[in-house]
């Protein structure tokens, strides 16, 4: 969407591509997922062509809430049980207290009208942010696209990420 608007009107200084922003989301913590999505959506609001590359525990943000036990290897199955994932089950990096911390944090956010991770994920998709899962970590954890939410790009690897980051004016690892 952003790309269309930019190309119709032209970008100051150059009529070509909009500037690019890449975020590597490597953490499944609630307090990391939140800034990843706040910055991704705000980047899109600034007319940037934003890609978020989800790798390692970052993939758990993209898991379906109803994804069952995944993988074929018993270790992958155990991972999918212990790291249940989905944007609704993320933990805090500190003060998690077996889920008490995230529950309090999400309650506060709701009271203060702070957009939830789920809302921001939907907004990111609406605003044209590319949500790119890492193929290698999906294979490692035994995840398929069926275990993930809709609206993701094709899984890709470090080569694609570096290719995008080389052209980007903002690169973040969160």
């Amino acid at each position: 969407m952003t790309t269309e608007v930019q190309s119709e009107e032209g970008v100051e200084g150059s009529a070509s591509q909009p500037e690019r922003m890449v975020i590597i989301a490597a953490s499944g913590d609630l307090d990391k997922a939140w800034p990843v999505l706040i910055l991704a959506t705000t980047g899109a609001a600034y007319g940037l062509d934003v890609t978020v590359f989800f790798t390692f525990w970052g993939l758990t943000i993209l898991k379906r809430p109803d994804a069952g036990i995944s993988g074929e290897d018993w270790r992958q199955k155990m991972l999918s049980i212990f790291a249940k994932g989905s944007s609704d089950h993320l933990k805090l990096s500190t003060l998690n207290f077996a889920g008490m911390g995230p529950w309090m944090m999400k309650g506060l956010a709701s009271d203060k009208n702070v957009a939830s991770v789920q809302e921001l994920l939907e907004l990111a998709k609406d605003m044209g942010v590319t949500l790119m899962p890492c193929q290698m970590t999906m294979d490692l954890m035994g995840l398929s696209l069926d275990d993930m939410i809709d609206g993701l790009s094709e899984p890709a690897g470090a080569g694609s990420a570096i290719g995008l980051m080389k052209e980007a004016s903002i690169n973040l690892f969160i």
Partner: peptide
Amino acid sequence: QCPMPVLKISQ
């Protein structure tokens, strides 16, 4: 709250 005002006006 942040970042919604910027996202809303941008949309």
